[in-house]
Amino acid sequence: MAYQSFEELEVWKRARSFKNEIHTLVKRFPTEEKFRLSDQLIPSSRSINSQIAEGHGRQTNPDRLRFCIIARGSLSETLNHLIDAFDCQLISHTELDFLRVKVQEIEKLLNGYITFLQNKSTTK
């Protein structure tokens, strides 16, 4: 299998798109949310990509797996913050559902990548 940059990973591409959607979304939030929910959503959504990239750069599969699992945690954290945004009436139910689908798509890709790395670890 040829070397693949983290930028070529479909999971990283989808997480990047999601991160950009979150960034656009929080621009609509009221000013008082700048140091509350906005400052929670932006870092958690950025962390998904960062963890995938950092794990990709590690030498061993256990390290790669660990960072992917952290990325999955950041994805869950981001969904939780989106639910908070809905509860605070900052986003609509339709928006939450749309973003939840994106989270589920990324989670499936991330779980697939984790399984791939786990299988690669056991075959060596």
Rank of each mutant, 00 (worst) to 15 (best):
K120C: 01
E21G: 02
D97Y: 07
G112M: 02
L90G: 02
L82P: 06
K102G: 12
H56T: 05
R100Q: 15
Q118N: 15
L96T: 11
F35H: 12
Q118L: 14
A85D: 03
N49Q: 05
S74V: 11
Q51G: 01
R46V: 09
T60C: 02
K13S: 09
L65T: 03
E95N: 05
S74H: 11
K108F: 07
Y113K: 01
Q59E: 12
L75H: 15
I114H: 05
Y113L: 14
T31N: 04
L75V: 15
I69L: 11
N49F: 00
N61A: 02
E54C: 10
R66E: 03
K34F: 01
E95H: 05
I106N: 03
W12F: 13
D39Q: 14
N61S: 03
L25D: 09
D84W: 02
S92H: 10
A15G: 07
E10L: 14
L25M: 10
Q59S: 05
T78N: 08
D87W: 00
C68R: 01
A53C: 09
D39C: 11
R16N: 15
Q59N: 04
L65N: 07
E7N: 12
I83M: 11
F98M: 15
A2Y: 05
N119H: 13
I42A: 06
Q51E: 14
N80R: 08
S47W: 09
K108L: 11
E10D: 14
V103M: 04
T94H: 14
S121Q: 11
K27R: 14
R100K: 15
D39V: 06
G55M: 04
H56A: 04
L117C: 03
E77P: 15
K108Q: 06
Q104A: 13
S121T: 15
E107F: 11
L109A: 10
N49P: 06
T94G: 12
N119T: 06
Q89W: 00
R14F: 12
K34S: 01
D84H: 04
D84C: 06
G57I: 09
T31P: 00
L96A: 10
R58S: 04
S47E: 03
E54N: 12
L82G: 06
